[in-house]
Structure formats: C-alpha cells, structure tokens
C-alpha cells in the first residue's frame, strides 16, 4: 500500500487521525493532514482504508498495485 495525501484538498476534519493515528497527523499551525507513514505495515492497512473512506474531502489516495511487484 502506498498513500498520498493532498494538503490543498484537506479540510482538517481530523477523521483520518481518529481512524489511523499511526499514519496520519495534523499540522500544528492549521490542522491540515500530515502523512507520517506513506507505506504502512500490513497490520495498519484496514485502518488506512477506513481513513480514506471517511475523509470528507477525498484528500487521501491509496495505491495497492505496487505492493505486488
């Protein structure tokens, strides 16, 4: 799994931090998403998929294919 985040799209709702706190954080100055781990361990994948699903601004993109190479 490879994660990218779009900080311009992010609206700072914080739902990704609640869903996957080991992978996402918020910038101190404006609460915008910060990616802590672009290639998280397998045990975190489900939480990351949930974070992407609940993101109201579609700011989180997941790519799976590269994992299989």
């Amino acid at each position: 799994m490879h994660i990218t985040v779009d900080q311009d799209k992010c609206c700072g709702a914080g739902s990704c931090v609640l869903a996957a706190p080991d992978v996402f954080d918020q910038r101190d100055e404006d609460g915008i998403v910060v990616l802590l781990e672009a290639r998280p361990a397998a045990g975190l994948h489900e939480a990351v998929r949930e974070a992407a699903a609940v993101c109201p601004a579609a700011a989180i993109t997941l790519e799976q294919a590269q994992e299989r190479v």
Partner: peptide, 17 residues
C-alpha cells in the same frame, strides 16, 4: 470558504481535543 475555515481548523484538531 477554505481560507476562513483554515483560520479555525487548528483549534479543533484531534490533538487539541
């Protein structure tokens, strides 16, 4: 909207809460 909202997002971010 984003310009104004971003003046407040830090106040409600998860670590603040």
């Amino acid at each position: 909207h984003a310009r104004l909202r971003r003046m407040l997002t830090a106040d409600f971010m998860i670590k603040k809460v």
